[in-house]
């Protein structure tokens, strides 16, 4: 089985963020692998270990991605492709999906594993749109996976009515949730080996496409501005005798907030 895993470099969401003049202040920000994509990498590596697979990752944009890709190598990914092009600075999910379509078409993959969503956009679209472009079956919000035979996998999707068990004919696209696994920490030996591995870096021309073809010249949507989010104010905090403060709070819920 040939697996393509998508990995995006995103801003570290745990750090404080400030907005000024419609943009996010870059000072003090750090960039890390998208959390859901780490689960996608782990999913691929486990498939390689348990079922035998060739694993390739692709990351689009994000400037220097060497450290992130090496980390994925150290986790067990074998090949890495980095696509970087100035035309992609304002890309939305559908543009990334077009680029991924080009990558897929060059590689003859059986399975594409994406994350459920990017932490910098929280959009959750790229894998699903890619599947549409490729005419492949797709399941998102995947929380479990099992290989049935050469041509099929069985996945669990967390849906509205409960957990759905779905059989997918390969080639297929899945988007995984963080609950699917616990990503491993890279070990020393893997880290040392990763240093010697190559990363294939390409621009759009090298990929055999252009800004026009992937829609980058006319994005379907673009961020006009960032704004500070309205934060909730903290209210009243009660400490002391449990019976006393709990009775006090219940009275407030009934008489002040009027919610019980």
């Amino acid at each position: 089985m040939k697996i393509l895993t998508t990995v995006k470099k995103v801003v570290d969401v745990e750090l404080n963020m400030h907005v000024k003049d419609g943009a996010i202040v870059e000072d003090g920000l750090q960039y890390v692998i998208n959390a859901w994509d780490e689960n996608a990498v782990e999913t691929s590596v486990r498939l390689k270990e348990n079922n035998g697979a060739e694993t390739t990752l692709v990351s689009i944009g994000g400037g220097d991605c060497t450290d992130m890709i090496r980390r994925c190598y150290a986790m067990g990914i074998e090949n890495g492709i980095h696509i970087d092009d100035p035309a992609l600075t304002k890309a939305d999910s559908s543009i990334y999906a077009k680029v991924l379509q080009k990558v897929y078409e060059k590689g003859d993959y059986d399975l594409i594993i994406t994350g459920k969503q990017s932490q910098d956009t929280d959009s959750g679209q790229t894998g699903i749109i890619l599947a549409e472009y490729l005419g492949l079956p797709c399941v998102s919000n995947v929380i479990d996976l099992e290989v049935t035979d050469d041509q099929h996998i069985k996945v669990s999707r967390s849906g509205d009515a409960g957990t759905e068990i779905i059989e997918l004919a390969l080639p297929a696209v899945i988007a995984v949730d963080v609950s699917i696994n616990e990503p491993r920490l890279p070990q020393m030996r893997g880290i040392m080996m990763a240093k010697r591995k190559k990363i294939k870096t390409m621009d759009l021309a090298a990929l055999g496409t252009s800004s026009d073809e992937i829609g980058a010249a006319a994005p379907k949507s673009e961020i006009a501005e960032f704004m500070a989010s309205e934060s909730r104010k903290s209210g009243q905090k009660f400490e002391g005798d449990a019976a006393e403060i709990t009775a006090q709070v219940v009275a407030l819920l009934a008489n002040e907030a009027k919610v019980i």
Binding site: V13, D122, I223, E225, F226, S229
Partner: peptide, 20 residues
């Protein structure tokens, strides 16, 4: 058409211009 939405785990809001 424009939309407002939270992003980056609700740390910021975005105003997004729709070009279609």
């Amino acid at each position: 058409i424009e939309v407002i939405r939270p992003a980056i785990t609700n740390k910021v809001m975005q105003r997004v211009k729709i070009n279609t």
